[in-house]
Simulated assay, not measured.
Amino acid sequence: MGPLSFLNHLLNFLAPAFAVAVGLVACSHVFMRKRARPHGWLAPMALHFAVGAAVLAGGLAVWGRDGRMLTYAALVLACASSQWLWLRAWKG
């Protein structure tokens, strides 16, 4: 596999984590304006992307292939949990 092919595979592997991170932060700025505004956009997106990439890598390690629906469900759950912790939503 050449370097461009490897880069293409890597970007396609990480695309769901990026999409969930961007969507989650954008929705938090729409629906939870007061809590999300002080945190900005870049830091929470980087955090959620890292969490999502770790979940996708874990799913690849466990099942030996990517694209399993259980891995995507774990991706959404893990990113939503990190968003909940990031915004300290338990405080009401």
Rank of each mutant, 00 (worst) to 15 (best):
M1I: 11
P3I: 14
L4W: 12
L4E: 13
S5V: 12
L7N: 01
N8Y: 08
H9S: 13
L10R: 14
L10G: 12
A15Q: 13
A15H: 10
P16A: 11
P16W: 11
P16C: 06
P16I: 06
A17H: 10
A17Y: 04
A21T: 04
A21S: 15
V22G: 07
V22C: 09
S28Y: 04
V30D: 07
M32G: 02
A36W: 10
A36D: 01
R37A: 15
P38Y: 15
H39Y: 15
G40I: 08
H48Y: 12
F49E: 02
A50Q: 01
L56K: 06
A61Q: 13
G64I: 09
G67Q: 10
L70P: 00
L70I: 13
T71A: 10
Y72C: 00
A73L: 15
A74R: 08
L75N: 00
L75G: 03
L75D: 02
L75H: 04
L77P: 01
C79V: 08
A80K: 00
S81R: 08
S81Q: 11
S81L: 15
Q83K: 03
L85A: 15
L85C: 07
W86F: 12
L87K: 03
L87G: 05
L87C: 02
R88F: 11
A89E: 14
K91E: 15
G92C: 06
